[in-house]
Design a binder for these strands. Structure first.
Length: 643
RNA sequence: GCCAAUGUAGCUCAGUUGGUAGAGCGGCUCAUUCGUAAUGAGCAGGUCAGCGGUUCAAUUCCGCUCAUUGGCUCCA
């Protein structure tokens, strides 16, 4: 038979050889490294016997699918170990994920960290035994009989299509329902580590029982594992929740409450700089600023639909039973800006109207969902609503993307995000407004826009807003958890609900479209992302303290005071540390606080009218004239230079 | 909200098998007037998260609450 290899070379092999034998015959090394095979696009076990001409790719740990197969096998090994140590444990599912694997178990008592150590030991035995993984197939009745003590597996088997073959994998004393593929034997998992224990709902639904999940990861070599663990540890050093507190950007207080951070002077300064930047940029681009109340009567939320669909998420002031009038803090800005729109009549000539607001929002998130500055109960959104005709939607949408792109470049984060086209889940009737035709139109419209500007994006079902599809700008925090940074949404539903209209050229009333968008997203969350991205060392233009003037001798203080005034007058955020100390000590302190520039002056500098400058991350710039230094600062500020 | 871990000085942590607590860093004061990762001395900071229970006695044991952290679910 003729086998086409991944490099395009066609080779002749004897019929009926396994993929592993072919790999071995190609090279000793490949045979050793091989994990799974890709036969005509399908990922298979290496033991798969090949009997006809095909394309064959041998996958190793360097390939995504090879890695996943190894991790998936590791999860089976973990399940085997758990079954040996805790025979009463019921198996749920155990897939590979982006960074390793997990397995969910139903156990009477959740695992402890001591249990993890025991499970790891047992896993080492299973690896050392180098048990082969054997695939076999059963009829539904046979599979149900084999898995009769595993209720979760039975549920899974019963949901498989009637005519599906049911495949299982066996390794020594352990058998699991599994589609595969797997590596040939347990000995392939050379180094692994169990990382954490967590609760997770069966099938991801909070209505179901909570199971015990164990996360782990595995590598081919011990060094790779150590390196990965080291990287994890280093990533956590960048955690905004740690750095932001250490660097005094924010704090929290038990008496204030969850999800309500106290933004300290440094944090407030950076947020102010970002806010001014965004509001100025939006004004340049034709947005009009509004300032609307942070609360409203329940009547408003009854119009918007929030009262019916979002009540649990709102802070309600007063008691509906007792009080005649009940207020609620706003979870969104849209109803308020819509009321501004409705306060006057609009011609098609007025559109598009772009209302923007730096908006404090309040959402009563469930208690376990708060996280640092990323998930809060009160937050500040750079919110805007663009009210336009159907014909204008495309251009407005593209202009918003251009604004977002400009902002991301200014923040230096444009390479750290990806785009997600979030669509409706047609099956989820409760969550979305029932208007299939409008969904079809707006989703198609959005897709066209994205394709026209050749955006790279992923598509996600059942992630849309209840009133329309979204384009989300996504990022990952230091723990690898994904969140939305910015979002742009096309809304076909709320304008109608609010009875918004404009008069078209035929003097007819028409219902406009609304583009909901955030430009820099939620300020607190964006700050969190920036602190992590820059490990606390924010670029000069957004650093709360840009220059520290440090005295080494008392004699130089007067000289530094003059420079402090000059820099301040020029708009530089400068502070004077007048207390004379050893210079090494001052530099260490400024570094710890991530100050971009430290300008030191002792007697030598005052005599020749210079400052000795040290730049964060770049070392000593030597002695330069104060004017020259000021110019550098102004240039870097204006250009939003990132270093 | 659910599963789990945690809560001792501003920060990082030690400690008490039940007899009300310490270190380093940080802060303040004084001395030092200095040259590129730590000058020296001294002082001040804690109802041991909060509330209840057991006990002669609770920071320690038990219960509840609050908060923090990692997941799940949800979401910007």
């Amino acid at each position: 038979m003729k086998i086409t290899l991944s490099d395009g070379v066609v080779k002749e092999f004897e019929n009926g050889m396994s993929a592993l034998l072919i790999a071995k015959s190609l090279s000793q090394k490949l045979g050793k490294k091989a994990l799974v095979a890709k036969i005509d696009r399908e990922i298979c076990d290496l033991s798969t016997i090949i009997e006809h001409d095909c394309k064959l790719e041998i996958l190793t740990f360097e390939d995504e699918e090879g890695k996943k197969a190894l991790w998936h096998t590791a999860s089976h090994i973990m399940a085997q170990a758990v079954k040996r140590l805790f025979p009463q444990a019921k198996l749920a599912i155990g897939p590979a994920i982006d960074t390793g694997f997990y397995y969910d178990f139903d156990v009477p008592k959740p695992f402890t960290s001591e249990d993890l150590v025991k499970i790891e030991k047992e896993m080492k035995r299973i690896v050392a035994a180098n048990l082969p993984l054997e695939r076999f197939e059963l009829t539904r009745a046979e599979a149900l009989d084999l898995m009769k003590d595993e209720p979760y597996k039975i549920e899974l088997i019963n949901e498989l299509p009637e005519d599906d073959i049911i495949s299982l994998y066996k390794q020594g004393d352990f058998t699991d329902l599994c589609a595969g593929p797997h590596v040939v034997s347990t000995g392939k998992i050379k180094s692994f580590k169990l990382l954490s224990i967590a609760g997770a709902y069966w099938r991801g639904s909070e209505k179901n029982k909570m199971l015990s999940r164990i996360y782990g990861t595995a590598f081919e070599k011990q060094e790779e594992l150590s390196e990965y663990l080291k990287m994890l540890k280093e990533a956590k050093q960048r955690d905004h929740n740690k750095l932001g507190r250490e660097l005094k950007y924010f704090t929290t207080n038990d008496a204030v409450g969850q999800g309500l951070p106290l933004i300290m002077p440094k944090g407030a300064k950076t947020l102010q700089i970002l806010q001014r930047f965004v509001e100025d940029e939006e004004e340049k681009r034709g947005y009009q600023l509004t300032k609307t109340p942070i609360m409203a009567k329940s009547d408003l939320y009854k119009i918007s639909g929030h009262w019916d669909h979002y009540k649990d998420g709102m802070f309600i002031l007063g008691d509906e039973e007792k009080d005649g009038e009940v207020m609620a803090l706003r979870p969104m800005t849209c109803p308020f800006q819509f009321m501004i729109y409705k306060s006057e009549h609009h011609s098609y000539r007025d559109l598009p109207i772009r209302y923007t607001e730096t908006s404090s929002l309040f959402r009563n998130e469930a208690s376990g969902e708060m996280h640092g500055l990323i998930r809060l109960r009160q937050f500040t959104l750079a919110d805007a609503h663009i009210i336009c005709t159907p014909e204008q939607v495309k251009k407005e949408f593209k202009d918003v993307l251009d604004l977002i792109s400009f902002i991301m470049k200014s923040l230096g984060i444009d390479k750290d995000v990806w785009y997600r086209f979030s669509k409706r889940g047609p099956a989820n009737k409760e969550k979305y407004i029932d208007n299939p035709a409008a969904w079809e139109t707006t989703q198609k419209m959005m897709k066209e826009i994205l394709d026209e500007i050749q955006m790279n994006y992923t598509e996600a079902d059942d992630e849309a807003a209840f009133y329309g599809p979204k384009l989300d700008v996504q990022f990952k925090n230091v723990f690898g958890k994904e969140d939305t940074l910015f979002t742009v949404q096309i809304d076909f539903a709320l304008p109608e609900r609010f009875e918004m209209y404009y008069v078209d050229s035929e003097n007819e009333k028409q219902c406009p479209y609304v583009v909901h968008r955030s430009s820099i997203g939620c300020y607190e969350r964006t700050l969190a992302m920036l602190l992590e991205k820059y490990a606390g060392a924010l670029p000069l233009w957004m650093a709360p303290e840009q220059v520290r003037l440090a005295a080494i001798t008392d004699r130089s203080v007067e000289y530094l005071k003059k420079w402090e005034k000059r820099l301040k007058d020029a708009g530089i955020r400068v502070s004077l540390d007048a207390r004379s100390e050893k210079i090494g000590y001052k530099i260490r302190e400024a570094r710890a606080q991530r100050v971009p520039y430290i300008a030191v002056a002792g007697d030598a500098e005052t005599e020749n009218g210079t400052l000795a400058i040290r730049k964060r991350g770049a070392g000593d710039l030597g002695q330069i004239g104060g004017d020259e230094f000021l110019q550098t600062l102004l240039d870097e500020n204006a250009n939003k230079t990132i270093f």
